[in-house]
Design a protein around this nucleic acid. Structure first.
Lengths: 141, 141
DNA sequence: TTGTATGCAAATGGTTTGCACCTAT
DNA sequence: ATAGGTGCAAACCATTTGCATACAA
């Protein structure tokens, strides 16, 4: 167990809070916000400041142990995914459950809804990069 | 011109501010935040409160005249797109220019980068909907 | 020991809202 | 005239940060 946590926090100190936070993450049934994770901890009688939760989430995301999975009411959502390869998330707006979907840039996503039983009611997609003009400008410098 | 604005604000009053705000939107070279739009207005000597800008953006988005195009430094980005059908946005992280991409759920997105000259360095995708379990539960009620 | 983590509270920053005033219709 | 729009300032809320204290190494 400790081995996995070491990797999750990538070479930092393993404190009681970080251990508890990682445990709470695995207990979350789906995508969760920092506040929800803190609530889960407090519900289990574990003391951990919100700031600490945020700092831990930042570490866990940096190591790739958890990933951002969109937003819900202005709050960032995270999810712990074992999936190694690059992928995307299907977040159930009712229960927060998360399904993994192959990256649309690498293949066809159509049919995913059918195979997972997910009914997609909406989605938010933003792709970032450099446009032709800026790419040329940078390349020229 | 007035006709287009009427549609943009869908049956509300057409005030000086709303006219100026819509005009400023068309002047933006790419994706923009509420603050950037306000700056554009103020730069042109147009008085318009930030709250008013936000309210106008909400209206414009409701009518479909503009769309959300991801986030930049915590601020929501918008873009005015003539494209009618459902699509997604490619936001240049250098200049904010926006390119339209077909929805990955409807077809293959691969090759879009090549055709637009856009180099995708990263993307943020979140799909929302109802998972099989929740869908069944709702259907049963 | 010692540098990193924690906790609290205060600061930040985008966005929203209450309310009195203004104005398109 | 009057419902809807505007401006300002205050309120909100998620997230971050400063700093003194606690603790893993």
């Amino acid at each position: 167990v400790t081995d996995e946590l070491r990797g999750a926090y990538s070479a930092s100190r393993l404190t009681r809070q970080r251990r508890e936070i990682a445990a709470a993450v695995t207990r979350m049934p789906g995508a969760f916000s920092a506040a929800q994770l803190a609530a889960e901890l407090h519900g289990n009688g574990v003391a951990a400041g919100l700031a600490t939760v945020y700092r831990a989430l930042t570490s866990l995301e940096a190591s790739g142990w958890i990933e951002k999975a969109g937003q819900r009411e202005g709050a960032a959502l995270f999810t712990h995914c074992a999936v190694e390869h690059h992928h995307h998330h299907l977040v159930c707006t009712t229960c927060g459950r998360v399904e993994h979907a192959p990256c649309p840039l690498e293949g066809v996503l159509a049919g995913v809804a059918e195979s997972t039983g997910f009914v997609i009611t909406g989605h938010d997609v933003a792709l970032y990069g450099t446009c032709a003009a800026c790419g040329a400008r940078e390349g020229a410098q």
